[in-house]
């Protein structure tokens, strides 16, 4: 039989995390991501050293991750938008204390309790901060079930390499839909964490993991150190994908599942002889600024499409910096735009 299996995006995240060596999962049920804790609760207890803990809240879950990852383990938590709001405190602490971990946000409609339909309205929260203080969160946005698996696997590596929290954001329907997926092998070699992970003081001086630095000068120095790391991440970890952008005059920018609607639209426009292409940010932070800038010359205009009232569009405008028009089209509240309405909206600007 083919090596591929048919999986929901959420299941793919869970399986891929296990392949990446994550044995510790802490979470709290919320639709539309509950398949992840369900999958983990079946699998992890069967793995030596594995544990699935259902936390009492998302506040607690992220702090359990903080503890487990501080012991040097690969640990993960997942949730959907309202639960991610509760995790923001923990994420800020984790970023400051430089503890590597992975968080998955299967986004739903908001604000408030909102609904369980897919949205992309958490962009500001996760890309621009969310928690308090000077920090950045690496944010990856898959657009297929295969990419859900691949980026989950990579997220753990990025987290370990830079000692940062990494978040995967997926729209609710990406978590729920099924596609064939192939998994990487079980990871067996990991970055050495012995210089910082808490393992007891048998062989070394006491180590500390903390986020409190009372003296302003020391705190500033620490923040500068974090930002040197962030600069490195911006240099090395920008990810994006292009579709028919060679010579394209209309550059559609869309991430996640909606980029697949955009593909449909671009195919149609190309059929009509209209030179359109897609630039799909895969890493929302670090944002593909340079890739966007490189299209300014050829572009008549940029067309940003999001399942929100317009959040990433602000980053596109910063990158384009007034050199060319940046138009926006979005649906929100959990409505997925159809190719036809996206097409009509692109055509308005032709």
């Amino acid at each position: 039989m083919s090596k591929k299996v048919l999986m929901k995006g959420n299941e793919a995240v869970a399986e891929s995390a296990i392949r990446a060596g994550c044995k510790l999962y802490f979470g709290y049920p919320i639709t539309p991501q509950s398949e992840i804790p369900e999958y983990m609760s079946r699998k992890l207890p069967q793995i030596p050293g594995g544990a699935y803990i259902q936390a009492e809240t998302e506040v607690s879950a992220i702090n359990m991750v903080y503890g487990a990852a501080s012991a040097g383990a690969r640990a993960m938590t997942t949730s959907s938008s309202p639960g991610i709001s509760l995790m923001m405190e923990g994420i800020s602490y984790i970023a400051c204390a430089e503890v590597p971990c992975v968080i998955v946000n299967v986004m739903r409609g908001g604000p408030g309790l909102g609904n369980i339909s897919p949205e992309q309205a958490d962009y500001f929260q996760v890309v621009k901060g969310g928690g308090h203080g000077n920090y950045r969160l690496v944010v990856l946005a898959p657009s297929s079930v295969q990419e859900m698996a691949d980026l989950t696997y990579d997220a753990f590596d990025i987290a370990d390499r830079y000692r940062v929290p990494v978040m995967l954001v997926a729209e609710g329907n990406l978590g729920q839909m099924m596609e064939p997926v192939e998994f990487k092998e079980l990871k067996t070699e990991f970055i050495d964490k012995s210089d910082w992970a808490l393992t007891g003081t048998q062989n070394h001086e006491p180590k500390i993991i903390t986020s409190i630095l009372l003296d302003p000068e020391t705190m500033e120095k620490h923040i500068h150190k974090l930002y040197e790391k962030y600069a490195l991440i911006e240099k090395n970890e920008v990810r994006f994908e292009e579709y028919l952008t060679d010579g394209a005059e209309i550059i559609i920018i869309a991430y996640g599942l909606i980029s697949r609607v955009a593909r449909n639209v671009v195919d149609k426009l190309r059929e009509e002889g209209i030179k359109a292409g897609i630039l799909r940010p895969v890493s929302l932070w670090p944002f593909p600024n340079e890739a966007i800038k490189s299209k300014i010359k050829q572009a008549k205009f940029f067309f940003v499409c999001e399942m929100s009232m317009g959040q990433m569009v602000e980053d596109v405008r910063l990158a384009v910096n007034g050199a060319k028009p940046v138009h926006f089209f979005g649906r929100c509240g959990g409505v997925v735009p159809t190719p036809i309405e996206m097409y009509d909206n692109v055509k308005r600007y032709l």
Binding site: S60, M64, G90
Partner: peptide
């Protein structure tokens, strides 16, 4: 000893 500092109230989770 080794040491970790937890957020307000979250020590039992860590």
């Amino acid at each position: 000893t080794d040491h970790i500092q937890a957020a307000h109230g979250r020590a039992p989770s860590a």
